[in-house]
Amino acid sequence: MRALGVDMSEFGTCWQDKITKGSTRPRSQLEERNLLLKGARKGDTVVIAAPLCLGISEKDAAWFLAELAECGAVVTVNGDLDTLKPGDDHSDMLRRVASAHNVHHVRVAKAKARAKSK
């Protein structure tokens, strides 16, 4: 968050989840995210570091954004660059999530190929 220029002193609780490789049930395995959803209230602002952090897939990110909207929370992604209010269209952000996942998977595949060739 600091790398994105987010002043952590002005925000409340910070959560971070780790999911194991090959996990297929993010709604039950991302426990910290579930706690965040239980505690989110109307008017709260949830700060997400990057589109990649919204979920393990575009479908998962769509679910997470819908849950936050239902709570009435405002979501900011990349610091203040992108703000989503309850009722806003999430389609552009979901395209960015899909793109971020594609870039990540390509980067991992290239790293594996380089390691194999050595």
Rank of each mutant, 00 (worst) to 15 (best):
M1W: 00
R2W: 08
R2C: 04
G5M: 03
G5P: 04
G5V: 03
V6H: 09
V6L: 07
D7A: 13
M8H: 09
S9D: 15
S9H: 14
E10H: 06
F11E: 03
C14K: 05
C14I: 09
W15V: 13
W15S: 00
W15T: 08
W15M: 08
Q16M: 14
Q16T: 14
D17I: 01
K18W: 09
I19T: 06
I19K: 11
I19H: 08
T20A: 10
T20M: 12
G22C: 07
S23L: 07
T24V: 08
T24H: 08
P26G: 11
P26H: 13
P26T: 11
R27A: 15
R27G: 04
S28H: 10
S28Q: 10
S28M: 06
Q29K: 13
L30G: 00
E31A: 15
E32G: 04
E32R: 07
L35K: 13
L35H: 14
L36P: 12
L36Y: 09
L36K: 04
L37I: 03
K38Y: 12
G39V: 00
G39F: 11
A40E: 06
K42Y: 07
K42S: 10
K42W: 00
K42Q: 05
G43R: 03
G43S: 08
V46F: 06
V46S: 06
V47R: 13
A49D: 01
A49Q: 00
P51F: 03
P51G: 07
L52R: 05
L52W: 00
C53K: 05
L54H: 01
L54Y: 01
G55M: 04
G55I: 02
G55R: 02
I56C: 10
I56R: 15
E58K: 02
E58S: 02
E58I: 01
A62P: 01
A62Q: 01
F64D: 01
L65D: 10
E67W: 10
L68Y: 13
L68V: 12
A69F: 14
E70T: 08
E70I: 05
E70V: 09
G72C: 01
G72Y: 03
V74M: 07
V74T: 09
V75I: 07
T76R: 13
T76N: 00
T76I: 02
T76W: 05
V77E: 04
V77L: 06
N78Y: 14
G79Y: 12
G79T: 13
G79C: 08
T83A: 11
L84K: 04
L84F: 08
P86E: 02
P86L: 01
G87W: 12
D88C: 07
D89E: 11
D89C: 07
D89Q: 02
D89P: 04
H90V: 13
H90G: 03
S91A: 15
S91L: 13
M93W: 03
R95C: 04
V97K: 02
V97A: 03
V97T: 03
A98C: 04
A98P: 00
S99G: 06
A100V: 06
A100S: 15
H101T: 05
H101M: 02
H101N: 15
H101A: 08
V103A: 07
V103D: 09
H104L: 12
H104Q: 06
H104A: 06
H105A: 06
V106A: 11
R107W: 00
V108C: 11
V108S: 15
V108Q: 10
A111C: 10
A111Q: 14
K112A: 15
A113V: 00
R114V: 15
A115T: 12
K116S: 10
K116D: 14
S117L: 15
